[in-house]
Amino acid sequence: MSSNISSLTLLRSLYQPQQAFAELAGSEPSARRIFLSYSLWLLLLPPVFALIGAANFGWRLGADQPLFMATGDLLTISIGYFLALLFGLFSTAIISRWMAKTYGASVSLGRHMALITMVGQPLAMASVAHLFPDVLVNVLVLIPATIWGMYLLYAGIPVALETPPERGMLMASALMAWLLVAAVSLLGISMSLWVLGVGPLLGV
């Protein structure tokens, strides 16, 4: 029996996280419904903002001249960005559920999907900074969003997934390890792709 977690609940986690987590607790929502009605649209924001920003303003990695890329390349990168985010959401939710038994957490995939969506939501919203694709501006906006997301992870797991506090902390740290590894892998894979030719011209 699946209870419905509304999009409002997911949105509410931005400004009333404790209530949102409490609503999640005890529910068994449909992972597919949550993804199709909310997470999918949230994940579209960063690539779309990035595409608009890069096309209109060019990439600024620091020094004054912005880099403009061909529209084809930009589209490829945006699609790649979206696919990476999709992978990130699904893999984290699935890994989170895989860990659930070890930490005495709920095994409802829908709940994990909802929680991970909530954790990533601040970053997705903050990606509006991509509209002006200056690396520094993005770093300054995305760091507080990241820290807020980290807080949601540690605060959310014990309540939403109904674990005892100590186990919840352990589980959050384990997921943190996965997220760090995923982030740095993204960095490495992006570098490798850029060096291999997808992106601005590099003299290697």
Partner: peptide, 9 residues
């Protein structure tokens, strides 16, 4: 940023 900008042509 440094790495990519240094290599950028």
């Amino acid at each position: 940023s440094q790495g990519l900008l240094w290599l950028s042509i």
